[in-house]
């Protein structure tokens, strides 16, 4: 039970960092004014158009598609696969498991494999393409290693070293109710969970801030209507008085 309590502490701490850190960053982005209209044109002229632009950006990676097809392919493959994998993992947190989650279980497995392939390709770029090698920092490599490690340990438990998933589920359902249950002693599982907790913890302090950031990007979220509406930030308005 020691390990069960240790992991419980780890996950509560990681979740607190993730939620608290992210909430702070979102608050900070939201409170900082955008004093000038700077949408990259051709930009939508209505709020609805902006919502659609952001949706295309988030769901289809529209700008990246224009930019670099290989990068777009591996980028969208990774993010799409991660989404499916996360959805598949909902079975550990819900009882009874929702029907769509049951339905997508096999796809989640393929997605796990696709995710690993995409991550490997994205990592290869950092070594093989001179320009990308130049801009890569150690944290860029570590982030890919972290994600790939999570994928590899997860796939490892699926295909090679099974763990007691019923017990794992009982553990996480307990965690949600603050009622700590036993956690199977399994090195692959321990590693998987440590890496996941690490990912949660570093999220608000790393480049993973691109996720909330894209919604706050003035070049993407502003309406192109500067001649029709007067746009004035509070600190700029003070200059007029």
């Amino acid at each position: 039970m020691t390990s069960a309590y240790a992991f419980a502490a780890l996950f509560y701490a990681a979740a607190a960092l993730l939620v608290g850190g992210l909430a702070y960053k979102i608050y900070d982005f939201a409170r900082t004014p955008a004093p000038l209209k700077i949408p990259t044109t051709p930009a939508p002229t209505t709020r609805g158009g902006v919502a659609l632009r952001l949706l295309r950006e988030v769901a289809l990676f529209e700008s990246l598609f224009r930019s670099n097809l290989w990068l777009w392919l591996f980028g969208i493959l990774f993010h799409g696969a991660l989404l499916l994998v996360l959805a598949r993992h909902l079975r550990y947190f819900t009882e009874p498991v929702w029907a769509p989650v049951i339905w997508l279980q096999p796809f989640g497995i393929y997605a796990g494999l696709a995710m690993a392939v995409a991550l490997a390709a994205l990592w290869a770029r950092r070594f093989l393409v001179e320009r990308i090698r130049y801009i890569s920092t150690p944290s860029d490599h570590l982030m890919l290693a972290l994600l790939l490690g999570i994928g590899a340990t997860g796939l490892g438990m699926k295909f090679f070293m099974h763990t007691d998933v019923v017990a794992v589920k009982a553990y996480f359902l307990g965690l949600l109710r603050f009622d700590i249950q036993p956690l199977p002693a399994h090195p692959g599982l321990y590693l998987h969970l440590i890496l996941v907790a690490l990912l949660m913890a570093v999220f608000p302090f790393s480049k993973l801030l691109h996720a909330p950031g894209v919604f706050f990007s003035p070049t993407r979220n502003q309406v192109d209507d500067p001649r029709e509406k007067r746009h004035l930030a509070p600190w700029a308005a003070k200059l007029e008085s």
């Binding site: 960053k25 700008s63 990246l64 930019s67 670099n68 990068l71 980028g75 770029r125 393409v129 320009r131 990308i132 801009i135 890569s136 920092t137 860029d140 480049k207 801030l209 691109h210 950031g213 894209v214 990007s217």
Partner: peptide, 8 residues
């Protein structure tokens, strides 16, 4: 904050 060094 948001750059991921994707290189696009």
């Amino acid at each position: 904050d948001a750059c991921v060094h994707c290189g696009a």
